[in-house]
């Protein structure tokens, strides 16, 4: 897999490059700001760009804006956005227009290498990877969406894992369920959420978006 890294902290940048190198993920460029990132993506066209949210010059949401720009300009390049903390608003912005090849994770997740690499792979394959913390925040709100309200506790649990971007097989392993019964639950979720038949991955993302939209965030 081919990646570029944008991270202004040297310690993190070097650590991530070394870690990815250990796992046969090539790091084509490691830059420290959004401008450098856009140039590196233009030059290398990586599979995934790994982006820190807070970078110079303003140290606010440069990373999110750069990620959105990359997603619209280079449809084949995925982005994995790392944040020092979780903002559901950022997750919403990232997924709104291009709900594929996108990931939003807490920096802490890098420590569990397996999850980090798994997220990278899912994004490169066209999927979505959301931090469990984002999902937890979204799910903790009793939703006003009628479709979501009809879900059973088990289905909500499965939807949460779907939202993180897990595959049916991974969900079955996680919940110690048979693959068949996970499939049945997922179909039930799609039906209750009134999601029309479409390629499975697309429907999964739509289900996640229903969660995000249910937050009814109306900021002017």
């Amino acid at each position: 897999m081919r990646t570029v890294i944008a991270e202004d902290n040297v310690l993190m940048r070097d650590g991530m490059s070394a870690l990815l190198g250990d796992h046969d993920v090539s790091v084509l460029a490691a830059v420290s700001d959004a401008a450098g990132l856009l140039a590196a993506v233009e030059e290398h066209r990586p599979d995934v760009a790994i982006v820190d949210v807070r970078m110079p010059p303003t140290f606010t949401d440069e990373g999110v804006r750069a990620a959105i720009a990359i997603r619209s300009a280079y449809p084949e390049t995925g982005v994995l956005v790392f944040s020092q903390w979780v903002e559901t608003v950022y997750a919403n912005q990232l997924l709104r227009d291009h709900p594929e090849r996108v990931g939003y994770l807490l920096k802490d997740r890098i420590v569990s290498t397996a999850a980090f690499l798994d997220a990278l792979r899912r994004i490169a394959d066209g999927g979505v990877a959301l931090d469990p913390e984002v999902i937890r925040q979204l799910l903790s709100a009793p939703t006003v969406d009628a479709g979501l309200a009809r879900l059973t506790p088990r289905e909500r649990e499965i939807l949460a894992l779907l939202a993180e971007g897990r595959s049916n097989v991974a969900i079955a392993a996680d919940l110690r369920l048979a693959g068949r019964s996970v499939e049945k639950h997922v179909t039930a979720i799609f039906t209750k959420l009134d999601l029309p038949p479409a390629p499975t991955d697309h429907r999964r993302v739509r289900a996640v978006l229903r969660y995000l939209e249910a937050q009814r965030l109306s900021t002017q």
Binding site: T88, V89, N92, S140, A141, T143, Q215, R216, T219
Partner: peptide
């Protein structure tokens, strides 16, 4: 405030 609302556990 948006994130705060999302985290609050209430609609």
């Amino acid at each position: 405030l948006g994130t705060l609302a999302a985290r609050s556990g209430l609609p």
